[in-house]
């Protein structure tokens, strides 16, 4: 199958899975900002997304996207190291045009993966998994997403870890979005500066939305400290 056997095919898989994840991330960010404005509104979304099989199927599909993206990233990185060969240059001078993120997509991806594990443990486990597996005795109701956000971001350690994670995602996306479009051939002399600009603005907006929620709940916890750090 050319999607696995050819270099351009493998890149198409990276690109399609990556861009699908970008769309999901955009939706996720929009959903999160609701929590800043309305507790009821946010919990309504949580209820809607937590208790039905469509949401579970959606989660499984997302999981599959991440796994495919990750496995192909591994294959690509491995092949590229091999193509580079054993001998390294003694002196290298990186051209200005070459952006840091573009050279470190794999490392950034690994950080994103670690952050994702933490994130799933913090939220998914307590919310969707708690409902699916009828886990009892948790601090908050599985549908009370608002309380879970408040709890996680009241802890300074989590707060900082999440900010680092957001940073890594931002770098990954500033390169990933335009690179994904370029891989699909949706670029050229005229469109290249445009997709680069779109990529920058889109990733910044998405990440700022996530950061806003984290900061809002962290600051809120500083103002009313009774929500202590009891989950650590």
């Amino acid at each position: 199958m050319w999607l696995c056997n050819s270099s351009v095919g493998r890149k198409v898989v990276m690109s399609v899975t990556g861009l699908a994840l970008v769309l999901f991330l955009t939706f996720h960010a929009c959903m999160n900002v609701v929590a800043i404005f309305s507790e009821e509104g946010y919990n309504m979304i949580c209820e809607f997304l937590g208790s039905n099989w469509y949401a579970v199927a959606g989660t499984a599909a997302l999981g599959a996207l991440v796994v495919i993206h990750f496995v192909f990233a591994l294959i690509l990185t491995f092949q590229n190291r091999k193509a580079r060969g054993q001998n390294r240059y003694a002196v290298t001078d990186k051209p200005e045009k070459v952006e840091w993120a573009s050279q470190n997509m794999f490392v950034l991806g690994v950080i994103i993966c670690l952050g994702l594990c933490l994130h799933l443990y913090n939220f998914w486990w307590n919310m969707m998994a708690a409902e699916l597996f009828h886990i009892q005795g948790l601090a908050h109701s599985p549908a009370d997403g608002y309380a879970w956000i408040a709890e996680v971001f009241s802890c300074p350690v989590y707060f900082v870890l999440y900010l680092v994670w957001f940073c890594a995602i931002w770098f990954h996306l500033t390169h990933g979005i335009w690179s994904g479009l370029q891989t699909l051939g949706l670029s050229g002399k005229t469109w290249f500066p445009r997709i680069k600009c779109i990529s920058q603005i889109w990733s910044t907006l998405v990440i700022l939305m996530f950061v806003a929620v984290a900061v809002f709940f962290f600051v809120k916890s500083l103002c009313c400290p009774e929500a202590a750090c009891y989950s650590l």
Binding site: N5, S6, S7, R10, K11, L76, Q79, N80, K82, A83, R84, K94, P95, E96, K97, V98, E99, S102, Q103, M105, H175, W178, S179, Q182, T183
Partner: peptide, 17 residues
Amino acid sequence: MDELGFGNCTNTRACEA
């Protein structure tokens, strides 16, 4: 190109530089 062992492009732009 693939058969001869060249790598997968990840759009770093080092080439055009």
